Simulated scan of single mutants.
Amino acid sequence: MNWILSIVLIIATVGTIVSLLMLLRYRPIRGTHSVSLRHFTLLVLVYITVILSFSILYLGLELLGMEVLKEGNSHVEGTVNHLIEDIIYFSAVTLLSVGYGDLVPIGIGRFIAIVQALFGYLLPAAFVVTTFLHVTKKEE
């Protein structure tokens, strides 16, 4: 069981890295607007991939017995469905904002949440930079 979770965690990490590289290397089709619907859709898909990848990472660590989240003053408990809901919610809130404080990372979860928050701040910047670099090259 542990090796299956390890493989899933590795796949989630590789998926996140590949999604980010796709965003950085993607160029709009020539003759279209610099910010195309395809480019925006790619950004949304990258966000979804990163949210789900970090969710899988948090869930995998929880299932391995490492506590990474607490709700209020206690460890996140309940059914597996409740745990999955809480983890996806925490992952989305961490990526898209600074968090609300209702779910708090602990232990290794703090480091992972920091990395995820950095991704959340860098993704829009990467989107804008790749778009403007393409526009600048196109005008030259």
Rank of each mutant, 00 (worst) to 15 (best):
Val128Pro: 03
Val76Gln: 10
Pro124Arg: 02
Glu62Ala: 08
Thr41His: 03
Leu83Val: 07
Ala113Arg: 02
Ser34Ala: 13
Leu123Met: 11
Leu37Lys: 11
Ser6Leu: 15
Gln116Val: 07
Lys138Glu: 13
Val46Glu: 01
Thr49Gln: 07
His134Trp: 15
Ile108Val: 11
Leu37Arg: 08
Leu83Glu: 04
Leu24Ala: 13
Ser19Phe: 07
Ile7Asp: 02
Ile88Thr: 12
Leu52Lys: 05
Arg27Ala: 04
Leu45Ile: 02
Arg38Gln: 07
Met22Trp: 08
Glu139Asp: 13
Leu96Cys: 08
Val18Leu: 12
Ile108Ser: 05
His75Gln: 14
Leu61Phe: 14
Val129Leu: 11
Leu57Cys: 03
Leu63Pro: 00
Tyr58Arg: 03
Leu61Cys: 03
Met1Thr: 14
Tyr26Met: 12
Ile106Met: 08
Leu20Trp: 08
Thr94Phe: 01
Thr13Glu: 06
Asp102Leu: 01
Thr16Phe: 11
Leu20Gln: 09
Ala125Gly: 02
Val115Ser: 09
Val14Tyr: 10
Leu118Pro: 02
Ile10Glu: 11
Leu133Ala: 12
Ile51Phe: 10
Gly101Thr: 03
Thr79Pro: 09
Asp86Tyr: 03
Thr136Phe: 12
Asp86Gln: 09
Gln116Glu: 15
Leu37Cys: 03
Ile29Asn: 07
Thr49Pro: 02
Phe127Glu: 03
Glu77Ser: 12
Leu23Pro: 00
Val98Asp: 07
Gly107Ala: 07
Met1Pro: 13
Met1Phe: 13
Leu57Gly: 02
Leu45Ser: 09
Leu43Gly: 13
Val14Gly: 08
Leu43Val: 14
Thr13Val: 10
Ile10Ser: 10
Thr49Phe: 04
Leu64Asn: 06
